[in-house]
Each structure stands twice: as C-alpha cells, then as structure tokens.
Design a protein around this nucleic acid. Sequence first.
DNA 1: AAACATATGTAAGATAATCTGACATGAAAA
DNA 2: TTTTCATGTCAGATTATCTTACATATGTTT
Lengths: 134, 134
Amino acid sequence: MGGSEIRRNMPLFSIGIVMQLTDLTARQIRYYEEHELISPARTEGNKRLFSLNDIDKLLEIKDLIDQGVNMAGIKQIFNVKQQTAISAAEKKQAEKTRRELSDADLRKLLRKELQQAGRFNRSGNHGDMSKFFH
Amino acid sequence: MGGSEIRRNMPLFSIGIVMQLTDLTARQIRYYEEHELISPARTEGNKRLFSLNDIDKLLEIKDLIDQGVNMAGIKQIFNVKQQTAISAAEKKQAEKTRRELSDADLRKLLRKELQQAGRFNRSGNHGDMSKFFH
DNA sequence: AAACATATGTAAGATAATCTGACATGAAAA
DNA sequence: TTTTCATGTCAGATTATCTTACATATGTTT
C-alpha cells in the first residue's frame, strides 16, 4: 500500500487545470503557496505542477476559507492533521514491527536507531479527489 | 459504475506530462493523433489536453508499435476492441433491461426505439494506467 | 536498384499559458 | 481610522505548445 502514495504525489497538473478542478483563481492558488499551504513542484521552466494531493489540499483550503478560517488557522490545521497521520503511521508501523521482526532484527534495528535519530517523510490524509479518480 | 467513465475521459494532462508518462515524443503523439488513433481535447487556445483514456491508448499504441504493428493495424485493433466493448455493454444492458423494466416500460421504450434509431456513445476498455492511479 | 511509403527527427515562427512583481481594493480587525 | 488580509488586475518576461515544412532512416514495391 505504498505505491498510491507515490501516485498521489506525482506532479501532473498545470495551474490551468487545477483552477478548473478547484474553482480557484491562479491568484488564490499562488497566494496559498506563498503562505506555504501547498508546495507544488516545478517544471524546468518554472511552471507549477500540482499533484492529486495538492488538489486535495486546495479543496480543503477552500472549505476552510468558506468557514472563515484564515491562512494561519489553515496552516495549524494542516500541521495537526499531519501530526495525527504521522502518529497513526508510527503506531501502525510499531504494530507491524512487533509482528514481523525477530529478536535479532530488533537488536540490529535498535543499534541503528540509537545512532542516527530523526529522519522524515510525508504522510497523506486524502481529501475527496475521489470525485475525479477511483 | 458510470462516473469513472467520465473521470477517465476528463481532459487533464498537457502534452509535456503525457510525454513523460508514456515516454513518447511530442512528434509521435501528434502523429498518432493525425492518424486518428487518439483525439485529445483542446483548450480554448488550441493546446492539446489528454485524458487517462488517451494515455492508456498511447501506451497500447507504444506496445503495438514495438511489436511491429503499423498505424493501420493499430486502428483496426482499436476498432475491434471498441466493437467488442460495445457488444459487451449491449449484452449487459440487455440483461439489465430484462430484469429492471416492467412490461409498460418496455412498450414505451419500444415506441421510442422505433422512431429515433441510431444514437451513440463512447465505450471504454481500460489499459494499464493503474500504474499511476488506483 | 530505384522509387516510394512510413514513422520519426528537427527547425522556424506564431501564439497561448504561466511566471513574477507591483499596485488597487473591499472587508475585517485593531 | 489606520492596518491587515485575501483577492483582483495589469505589465513585461519566459516557457510550452502549436502548425508547417523539410530531412532521414528503414522497410516495401516495382
């Protein structure tokens, strides 16, 4: 179940398409990027390229703005969601680990873990792009 | 199960992205369009916009060309596939009809059918874009 | 072999789509 | 009322794509 992560993060859509899909103006989309609510990829020539996850986020942003939340609020909400997702992933991973690793593996892992702490990753709580893809 | 049809036919992708996704050159893609193997939509400004189905087809075309099939051959293959799909759909539809319509409905339908014959529609035998979306 | 057809490469000139940066503005907050 | 926020709008620059035309390698027909 890790492949769909990649797919949902694949930069595929031009800003024009994203405008249609989200019903936001280019100005709005760029403004949200400026406030780091999204971070679309770029082409070699500096054109923005959005992923499905970006579009999900934009739809969420739109909802939240309709409900009167400002940039700062949305940023916090995203942080919380991300943290929640990370926790959930860690929990799942811990559970998986408990079941899958032998004691020997565990010792090896522990050693590694003690040395280099703190790597990171994206998470992914999907919105409702299910309207567009299945 | 009709919504995903729409989604797969939604024009979303610029030619640049399709080039990356299919590993075809712009020249090749335009050539295949010229030979009516695909019919991408256009923006107001005449830029091509490809759907998931278009991309499926391009991947199929690529395979067939690798296997030495020429434009004419591919066109025939697509025709056959489409016909097959239509037949399948008709069969399914007939079955559905048999189960779902009352005799009254059937009489009404029959009348209509006798008047205006011959409307049409797309079909859809999907390729393997499952690599990119789920 | 010569001539032709097919599929693709490549280049030129035109136009569309997008970019950044700046200034304008209405509504809400201070 | 003055600021701040979210968005609109315009200008000038750059990228991406378009069509058309010619070039070319490989395969086919005469």
